[in-house]
Every structure is written in C-alpha cells, then in structure tokens.
Simulated assay, not measured.
Amino acid sequence: MDRFKQIDKIVKLLLIKRERALTEHEQETLNDWVNESEGNHALYDDLMDETKIPRKLDDLVQFDQQKAFREFERVAKQTKVRKLYRNAFKYAAILIPFVIASWLIIQQNREVKETPIATVVSEIGPGSSKAILKLADGSVVDLEVKKDLIADLDGIVVQNGPKEILYSSQETPQKHEEIQYNEIQIPRGGEYLLILSDSTKVWLNSETSIKYPVAFASNVREVYLQNGEAFFDVKKNKNSPFIVHTSKMAINVLGTSFNIRAYSDEPELTTTLITGKVSIKQLDSDQSSNLLPNQQASLSATGIAIKNVDVNKYIAWKNGRILFEDNTLEEIFKDLSRWYDIDVEFKKPASRQLRFSVDVERYENLSQVLDILELTKKADFNIVENTIIVN
C-alpha cells in the first residue's frame, strides 16, 4: 500500500511540475524517486520530453483499451498461468498511474494547442492611477489623459499630476451664495489622490465616488463619500470642523486621519481611526459614538459596534500593500476584483469560506497573489480571459 501511495504522489508531482515550479520539498521528493533506479530516471525523462509527445499521442489514440483488458482477463483466468498473471497484474497496477500521467500530460499539450485565441491570457497587471473628474458646469475630464492645468475657478487653481489632483488657493476665493461642487469617480482598477483646497489629502480606492466643494465655506468643511473607500488626512482647523457624509452616517472631525469603507454592495460601513478623534452619527437614528485611535466603528442593520483593531490591516491599500489576515476567499476576491478589474467564479460554494492570510505588494501582477494562495493547497485557480475560476 505504501508503494501505491508513493506512486500516486510521484504522478501528482509530475503533473504539478508542468504547471509551476516545485517547492523545495516537492523537488526533493521527486529527486529521491528519480534516483531510486535507472528505470525511474528513464521514465521521468520520457514523460518530460516534449519532442516525444506527438508519438505518445499517436500510440495512445490507436490503443484499444477495452480489447486489451478483455484479453488480459481471459488469459489471467487460465489456471496454468494464474500465478504468472497475478504478478503481471501487480506490475501493471504499478504502471497504470504513469500511463494516466502520460495521458494527462498529452491532454494538457492538446488543450494548449486547441485553446481558442480568445482564452489565451497575458499577465493581469495591477491597477493604476486613473479617475474621472466631473466639474461644476457638468463637463467631464479623464484625469488619466488630461494633465497639468485643468481649470481656474474663482481663485482656486485645479492642477492634475500623474497620480493626484490638487486644488490650491492662489488668492482669497470669491464669495458665492451657492457652493460649487466637483465630483471624482475612480473606476475598477484605479486609485487617485485628491488634495482639497484646505490641503486635506484624500486617497481614493477603486470603485469610489466622492463629491466635494471647489472651495470650502468658512465655518464648515463638508464632503460626500457616495460610494467606495477613502483615507482622509484632514488639515486641522479649530474654527471649521470637517464632516464626511456617507449614505448611512456622518463623521465629524477637526484634524485627524482615518479610513472609511462604504461600498454600497457590502452590508457593513466601517470607519477606522488612525490618529486624533472623530464623532460618528448614524443618520437614521440619534445614535452617535466617539472613536479613539486604533478603534473601528462598524455600522450594520443592528446599529454601530466599536472594537479595537490593528489599523495596518485596514489601511494597507493606501500604503501600497495587499494585506489579509484570516479572511475568507470571498472577501479577498471582492477586493482583488476591484483592484485588478477581474471577475471571479467559484466552482464550489464552500470555496468562498476558505480562509487565507496574504501580504504582498499592491503593484504586483495578479499571478503573484494567486501563487501565494495556491501554496496553501486549499484551492487552485484558472484564468480564462478576465475571469478567475476558483477550483
């Protein structure tokens, strides 16, 4: 039985080796088997030899498996040769896995050759700095294309750089009865840095939309996070509180840094405080709460819940990291799908609840992340066009 287990393991390693580099332990196991005998060494070289694949394919296609097995059974039943064929059967059983391995290797080569061009995928790269700006007059600017000066609005100069858009006051803004608003939308696979007219910095994650004044009023600064995720580093001004409005809560601050995650397709809205102090008010009730550094407020259907957290996990995206700690695969791919602009298909519902921890640079190709996930042996992934299939 141990021999069969070893053979099964070797077959799996042979197939894995054709898909990716083996780990140090896997390669050591395969080397031990190869070096056991000259026969093993010859069989390994044969299975790995691409030039012999066409001949193997021809032999396999012409082989009548059912006819051969019927003949084997007939001969094995003859009394005089029963012992001989018991031995033959033993060795045949040992060779069967390698026949299967050969067939699978040939099949893999055939599938590669027959794969339609539409499913051949180049490396899926990370997101980049891209955004759409909607001005107060309704005109739309693609910030990935339009650089440098965009507008001069009543003393506020709007400048766009490679990764950020800056609103700066060159003179005292003119007073208007109606505040003019701009809006920035970040698409899937995008991010951007917004610097408001009071020097507050707002990092915007993928699939985020924010509405804000070109110039703030003197007594209050209000912005509207309509959807998505944003990290705020608010410029301190005791005479002008800063308020972030979302669909379900308002966050009131003076000078502080915090992260808000408010995606409309997620059940919870979270605010994570890094420095300073904020007050959170639930819009459809009188409930309000204060947050201290390293605390997070989660708003769900049951109300506001506050807990202590490691803030690095929640602001890793802003710091150029992809960081998950014991998250479900469904949670992980929800973020990855936004950043890499991909779709995800789970073959088995149970796969959604598998848990993983990942820490990798945010600007790595998607394959780097998938390789880390596959090292756990809990799941493997196929890429078809722009869809990740979770097996």
Rank of each mutant, 00 (worst) to 15 (best):
Q6H: 10
K12F: 01
D32S: 11
E36Q: 15
E36N: 10
S37M: 06
E38L: 10
G39S: 07
G39D: 08
D46M: 09
L47M: 08
M48D: 06
D49W: 10
K52C: 02
R55F: 06
R55S: 10
L60I: 12
Q62S: 14
K67D: 08
K67I: 04
A68Y: 12
E73S: 10
Y85G: 00
P97Q: 04
I100C: 02
A101M: 05
W103N: 14
E114I: 06
T115Y: 06
P126W: 12
G127M: 04
V141D: 00
E144S: 15
D148N: 13
A151S: 15
D152R: 13
L153Q: 15
V158K: 04
Q159G: 03
E171M: 12
Y181W: 14
E191C: 02
E191F: 01
S197A: 15
V202D: 08
A215P: 01
A217P: 00
Y224D: 10
F231Q: 00
D233V: 08
K235Y: 15
K236V: 06
N237G: 07
K238S: 12
K238Q: 11
P241I: 04
V244F: 11
V244L: 08
S247H: 13
I251K: 12
I251M: 07
V253K: 13
R261Q: 15
R261F: 02
T270G: 01
T270A: 14
I274N: 12
V278M: 04
S285D: 02
S285G: 03
A297C: 03
L299D: 00
S300G: 09
T302L: 13
T302Q: 15
I304M: 11
I315N: 11
W317M: 09
L329C: 07
S337P: 01
I342C: 05
F346C: 00
R352G: 04
R355F: 00
L366Y: 06
Q368A: 09
Q368V: 11
N382A: 10
E385W: 06
I388S: 01
I389T: 09
